[in-house]
């Protein structure tokens, strides 16, 4: 069953309190972030319906938002999502090579997940780290100044964290 823990529900109430009376729809994006974190890294139709009922919204209001923003996954993803930036400034500093290296190393293409379900590779547009390129987002944090050696270390670190 899709259901937030009591601590999470208290957090949702706190978020709703940030807005004036009757404006709880504003809590939708923050709550979708929480849902994605708590329920396997993606927003299933069931999860979205749960969020809708929680915020007293029509399910369509949730679907249309979930599909608009690139951080929300509406398909399952691996345990570790490599989101590598490939916009101009990162390209100038070798993001193409880094993406090529990750593809080879993990044996997957962009948008794919490894067979063991551990890694998903995505390309993303500028993340505001252009001066520290090439870079990727991994969970909550950025990994910057990437080199093949750093990528190897990150992959190893992810494998360890699952083991």
């Amino acid at each position: 069953m899709t259901q937030f823990s009591d601590t999470r529900l208290a957090e949702v109430r706190q978020i709703i309190d940030r807005y004036p009376e009757g404006k709880q729809k504003s809590a939708l994006i923050p709550v979708l972030h929480m849902a994605q974190e708590d329920f396997s890294g993606w927003l299933s139709p069931e999860t979205m319906d749960y969020v809708a009922s929680l915020l007293q919204l029509e399910p369509i209001e949730v679907y249309e938002v979930a599909t608009f923003y690139s951080m929300f996954n509406t398909q399952p993803v691996g345990s570790h999502v490599f989101e590598v930036c490939h916009t101009g400034p990162c390209m100038l500093r070798g993001s193409d090579d880094i993406i090529g290296y990750i593809k080879g190393k993990l044996g997957i293409g962009v948008g794919e997940t490894t067979a063991d379900g551990l890694f998903t590779l995505k390309t993303v547009e500028c993340l505001g780290a252009c001066g520290y390129a090439p870079m990727m987002q991994l969970g909550k944090h950025y990994r910057e100044h990437l080199t093949p050696e750093k990528v190897d270390a990150i992959i190893e670190e992810c494998r360890q964290s699952v083991a």
């Binding site: 940030r18 994006i29 923050p30 979708l32 972030h33 608009f68 923003y69 690139s70 951080m71 929300f72």
Partner: peptide, 12 residues
Amino acid sequence: CQIYVQRGAGAY
């Protein structure tokens, strides 16, 4: 006065 931080979700 109160200040609140609201996160977007990836949209330039």
